[in-house]
Write a protein that binds this DNA or RNA. Sequence first.
DNA 1: TCACTATATTCCTTGCCAAGAATATTCACA
DNA 2: TGTGAATATTCTTGGCAAGGAATATAGTGA
Lengths: 115, 115
Amino acid sequence: MIATFTALAEPNRLRIVEFLQRGAQPVGAISERLHLRQPQVSKHLQVLKGAGLVDVRPVAQQRLYELQPAPFHDLQLWLEPYRQLWAARFDALDAVIAELKQQERKETRHGRKKK
Amino acid sequence: MIATFTALAEPNRLRIVEFLQRGAQPVGAISERLHLRQPQVSKHLQVLKGAGLVDVRPVAQQRLYELQPAPFHDLQLWLEPYRQLWAARFDALDAVIAELKQQERKETRHGRKKK
DNA sequence: TCACTATATTCCTTGCCAAGAATATTCACA
DNA sequence: TGTGAATATTCTTGGCAAGGAATATAGTGA
């Protein structure tokens, strides 16, 4: 998890990962489209590979880098316990709304008085 | 997104975030349970606060730190496009399984031959 | 106002990491 | 086998970020 976060914490690496959503890409294409120098791209890709975020497939003298599902899936699982953070908040909001409706009904029944 | 990843990339900060799943905690409790010195905890909490991952609520001379939903929700949204990575993989696996079953049926029909 | 508790801040040092520049490696093809 | 294209590696430097120690600040109660 730390490895994943560390890898994604670097701006250019994050850009590379997002670019790879389009599918496997050779180093040159990444370098060109993201305006990064080739050596830095290679280095970032090594880090991403080290974290298991990408894998390589050699094609002629090119190397095609491709996203790997596992870390993203792990991230999803890691995130699960935190889901209740905003779920709870929405529940609370629902409760408030229910309360308001209840209040509204009472006031309507008794004839609405000041505010 | 970068801010979130950067904040979570530091091991002790990640531990703090995970500890805060139990609900709001004062600095002292975090320091004690995670065996971290108080100043470092305060410093990490500032970083987490800067990234919007936590918020503070003063209670007497304590400060209660609490997780904030927004960044986690954002992370969930960011992750969405990558979901197809493993979804696609499962589809592929399904295809393989279907293929195998098909094969199995043929072999059964013709009388199974070597292997 | 004083003393005590809880937390924040500052200063310093050290280690790591990203970029740049130069060079090495790998591979296809003539 | 030599040449050019694509990519990887090495070395160096600058900056930033984390930990430690010391100190400052806020808030409470007597």
